[in-house]
Amino acid sequence: MTPALLQRLLAAREAKRPVALLTRLPDGAQLLFPEDATPPALAAEAEAALRDDASRSVTVDGTAWFIAVENPPLRLIVVGAVHIAQALVPMALPLGFAVTVVDPRRSFATEERMGDRVAISTDWPDEAMAALAPDARTAVVTLTHDPKLDDPALEVALRSPAFYIGSLGSRRTHAKRVARLTEAGLTEAEIARIHAPVGLDIGAVTAPEIAVSILAQIVAARRGGPKKKAEP
């Protein structure tokens, strides 16, 4: 890889632009998609690989290419800079998430509590969420327990293509939440997207355990859940 190409790739990553590094095998000639002119059939393969978020080898017109997908990071938006968030945030980082914590309560939403590797927004959740604009590579978790904070965030999240939406609270708390969101005009199908009670049911008790259960559920949502065991 030439230094110029490496720099362009790193610049795209920095700007959070999805790109694919196309390497012709076995001679190693390289293109950066979509910045470089790419033959249409190869471009279509690169588009598909980016959409699937899966690097792979393809053969186009008898030539083998490796498509290395360089998508921007997944995002995790955590509403509520609460105790569970303190456990959740540092675990989400090595899973590849860029994390933003939203909490208008400035005494909670501090770098001291959340660490210096996350973005913190102290805007009101509906404004913060509208600005963050969750996309199909975004997970949203609300943790405040407080309808004034959770509900406005959920109203934005449920109308977004976020791939995962989870909300802390017991079944009873969630039943009340469903009633409020219905009242607010969300459809049954939209409300049904909320994972609640949040997280896989692993009997989690402590904040780190709950964080594990939430992240496991997020990974399952992203990767498509349990897989068949590989053939021996």
Binding site: L6, R13, E14, D53, V69, P72, L93, G96, V118
Partner: peptide
């Protein structure tokens, strides 16, 4: 924030660039 990609949290190309530098 840096060092994360969609498929792997290890930023090997970033590491390679730093080593080259």
């Amino acid at each position: 924030m840096s060092g994360t990609t969609g498929t792997d949290s290890e930023d090997i190309l970033g590491t390679a660039a730093a080593w080259l530098a």
